[in-house]
């Protein structure tokens, strides 16, 4: 018997006996990254504020009163008021719902479709790969903001269409990432090993390829949320996004544009909000990238 071949040694890694969940490990590693936790903290704070907007800021986002327009920050309107006398903070908090959900949904759309297309292209290769990737190249040839503009102009404005437009315009990027990592993974010996024990294509994709390809997608997704918010803001800025009086951050920036010389709070605060959100998402994305790498321990 082979049992007599020594396996124990003084240097054996100390291993916990109970089953460890990989996601718990990821969370444990993420917690050690202070910057990532700062990013996560900011985001959680923003989401909570956005969710409880009606409670905290009962005035709503369209409480117009011309007589109190263009106020600088004061004790009642912390961030001042805009050209229609609406509290900028009130609008921003309500707007957070719109901006954050645009970011999330747009990225979800692009991850799901981009991931699927990229995985198919990478896994099957050949003709399938060619057809999918060349079609996506056509999309890629058009600057994504231009693409989003065309989609919104074709479908009309509105929250859902903006999400769709931003989501579709970033599909090619995700497809490329997923395809590249699937191609690398496909050549790994452990995929061949899975074939050797009789695993089906479905099992190989679900059990072996996706879990390993997930990390770069999650990271790209986190960073993508930031990009999507920016794109949506861009769309609103040029007037193709949400119709007024919807308080999307980009729309607010855009609205403040004509008053930028006379009334700075209208551009400064929404701009800051976008900046901080993107900063937080980037921090979290970087942290996740490290935390998701199973080879980096601790």
């Amino acid at each position: 018997m082979a049992k007599n071949v020594a396996t124990a040694s003084a240097s054996a890694p100390v291993v916990a006996d109970k089953k460890r969940n990989q996601w718990k490990e990821v969370w444990r590693r993420l917690k050690q990254n202070k910057m990532a936790m700062l990013g996560l903290g900011i985001l959680v704070f923003m989401v909570i504020i956005a969710l409880s907007a009606d409670l905290l800021f009962p005035k709503g986002f369209d409480d117009q009163m011309i007589s109190r327009r263009f106020q600088l920050p004061n004790s009642e309107y912390w961030f001042g008021t805009d050209n229609l006398g609406r509290g900028i903070l009130d609008r921003m908090v309500h707007g957070a719902r719109v901006s954050l959900s645009i970011g999330l949904f747009a990225v979800t759309i692009s991850i799901v479709f981009g991931g699927l297309l990229g995985a198919m292209a990478g896994f099957y290769g050949g003709k399938v790969d060619n057809i999918i990737m060349r079609s996506l190249d056509v999309l890629l040839a058009i600057p994504s903001i231009l693409l989003a503009i065309s989609i919104v102009s074709a479908l009309g404005g509105g929250l859902f269409n903006v999400m769709l437009a931003v989501g579709i315009s970033s599909i090619p990027g995700y497809a490329r990432i997923v395809r590249a990592s699937v191609i690398t993974l496909k050549g790994q010996e452990f995929i061949e090993a899975a074939r050797a024990i009789g695993a089906s294509d479905k099992r190989i994709i679900l059990r072996h390829i996706i879990p390993n390809a997930l990390a770069p997608i999650i990271v790209q997704g986190t960073l993508g949320v930031a990009g999507a918010i920016l794109s949506a803001a861009g769309l609103s800025f040029i007037g193709l996004g949400l119709a007024p009086p919807n308080p999307e951050w980009g729309a607010m920036l855009s609205g403040g544009r004509q008053f930028i010389r006379d009334h700075w709070p209208m551009t400064l605060f929404p701009g800051l909000a976008i900046m901080i959100t993107i900063f937080a998402l980037n921090l979290l994305g970087d942290g996740l990238r490290d935390a998701l790498d199973p080879k980096l321990r601790n």
Binding site: Q188, E189, F190, A193, I197, R207, N212
Partner: peptide
């Protein structure tokens, strides 16, 4: 069956030891 050259590349990094050995039994 086959045993591969590279003991680093031939095991799925996201599966635990028991999951790897169990997989052929499941399939």
């Amino acid at each position: 069956q086959i045993v591969f050259q590279d003991p680093y590349a031939s095991l799925n990094p996201r599966m635990s030891l028991s999951e790897i050995i169990e997989e052929p039994l499941i399939i």
